[in-house]
Design a protein around this nucleic acid. Sequence first.
DNA 1: AATCAATAAGAGACCGGTCTCTTTGAAGAA
DNA 2: TTCTTCAAAGAGACCGGTCTCTTATTGATT
Lengths: 362, 362
Amino acid sequence: MKRTAPKTPSITVSDVARAANVSKATAARVLGGYGVVSDTIRADVMAAAKALDYRPNELARSMTTGRSGIIGVVVGDIENPFFSLAVRGISDAARAAGFNVILANSGERIDVEKAAVRLLIGKRVDGLIVTPSESRDISHLRDIHRSGRPLALLDRALPDLDVDTVTVDDRGIAMRATRILVDAGHRNIAYVTAVDAEGHEYRDLGQIYTSSVRERIDGFLTVCREAGIDRPERYVRLGATSPAETRRVADAVLSGPDRPTAILASDSVIALEIFKVIRQRGLRVPEDISLITFHDADWTSVTTPPITVIDQPVYALGKSVAELLIRRLKGDPRPAERLILPTSIFERGSVGPPSNAIVKRA
Amino acid sequence: MKRTAPKTPSITVSDVARAANVSKATAARVLGGYGVVSDTIRADVMAAAKALDYRPNELARSMTTGRSGIIGVVVGDIENPFFSLAVRGISDAARAAGFNVILANSGERIDVEKAAVRLLIGKRVDGLIVTPSESRDISHLRDIHRSGRPLALLDRALPDLDVDTVTVDDRGIAMRATRILVDAGHRNIAYVTAVDAEGHEYRDLGQIYTSSVRERIDGFLTVCREAGIDRPERYVRLGATSPAETRRVADAVLSGPDRPTAILASDSVIALEIFKVIRQRGLRVPEDISLITFHDADWTSVTTPPITVIDQPVYALGKSVAELLIRRLKGDPRPAERLILPTSIFERGSVGPPSNAIVKRA
DNA sequence: AATCAATAAGAGACCGGTCTCTTTGAAGAA
DNA sequence: TTCTTCAAAGAGACCGGTCTCTTATTGATT
């Protein structure tokens, strides 16, 4: 009386078989939709299943077949619109192919990422899509490969890992964006990214283990140097990992002795916070400071002025990587593909000539 | 030579047992962390496991234990920042308790929602969190309950379903927001929502099957009537289901014969689109039209003027509902709880006196 | 009418864990 | 010394499906 069985015993194939007066094997054939069964028996089994309200146990099914119908996805931060849009692309492509998605957040921390990958492998996902937070330690990604499960990389490539990868031309597009600023006359341009490094100070590219960001900084610095800017790396700022940290970084950038006249933000979350700080300090965009950001987030077109952005094909990025993975899941033997999607820049109103151009010449 | 075994045979408990010269049961005890084993044997088994790189098959584990460690979540639209933030809250709470989250999108369509629920039950999730898209057809939610799995409702209550539910006081907060507009002098106020109904035209509350929205409209109309506004339901606009549809609705609202002087938007995605249309038409906020929206989305504070918003505790909403579910998962026998989280309004700059106040009086 | 092939249904192993029940062996009590 | 007691390890059933192999039945073939 006190404790009735806590587990609701669910209806199994055997139950249905018994009710339909057939063997377990036959009921399984009907219910599982395989093998050969006569129409009469099929109808009987179906009727029994309906009467008992039979629901297949996908877990048991997965265990014998070895396939779970689940794609594991590990991204840096779902809250970032970049990732939530990419995940949407992945989900849509997955559902279209009959797969489901199980999502994990790494918070851009390698240990969390490793744990997530381990867990997803344990859950026997059919394949994984990862946004690797670091290029240094990829042993867990190698493990995936070794376990026979296909892996695909989203937004960040790993030269050492020969798997399907979908990215954009980060270096090239960073160059184009930087050139827009240089052409407008800017010589003091800051690059702000969430990626952090030991010492929190940028020294050289070797510190940056997030491939996309390294590419971007490389492109940024290249154009700066071409333009004859002295030590442009002074203006590379790391560690904008949260809104609070971003405000700190932005404050430091904007209050320093020689304040940059333009900022290139590595993602829209950072840009939004920077924009707020700029406003707070009573500065104007673009009169006092020009701003370009990666990712055409929804808000960038409604500010005054609207923000010039690098429009990454985020949804397509997610959709493509999922399609690549699914192709592999279906046994495609082609060698790993590295897809680079085209990216454009929407020039809006946040870039103008540098504020101190006249001052300096005076 | 042609096709080597496609399945990489993974290391099982038996393999480890064999390597460590113990029985399968003993190896399982060590690897599964249950039962009693001597330190010597434990060390042996661990060593063997490490040497073979053993990875437990969570699927098999789940099958015998009946627990999968997964919480299934079905939301309307992950792309909507409201949901992505709520999901973040759910994920954080879930991870803290050792659970994982599997996410499904319903696109606010009841058939998709049903399919998703069915699938998640099949996958033997331990419990579900659902944002029911309709209050009419909840048979699938009853099924969950019947299957013995706990269910918790997020953001939308169902009077007929006695399960843990976390919402906000939609009616009350809609009343407060409407009152702000009424007090500012507005008498023509539009309410725009994504929810659609047969005929796409609002007639009465009976058409609205999304509880939160029904509550809101109810609150909105109540205050309008208190203020002596004639037939306020004329201004309830349905069907802003996508950016394109929202633009269509906004255009209709703003170009009609008697244009409202204020708009209350049911979510931030809608508000953003409306804001864009207002701008496009050369109208000003709040001089020509006042605007209040549900959800303090990131962009609402950086527009000119910043938008007055209803600040729902979205992250807490997700976190709380997950905690409630987990409590139940751990066997809490308390009766179902209906949590209503406090909500506030951030008054910013998007509300002013109605533009035609003077005109009308003239 | 007898043989054979094809079709439909049944029996039971298997997947990789968990878990109950049984057996073993050594320490402690009488 | 013998019996009891208990910790530690082993044996094997079980979860709910899939799938191979075997058996029974039917129709076609000669």
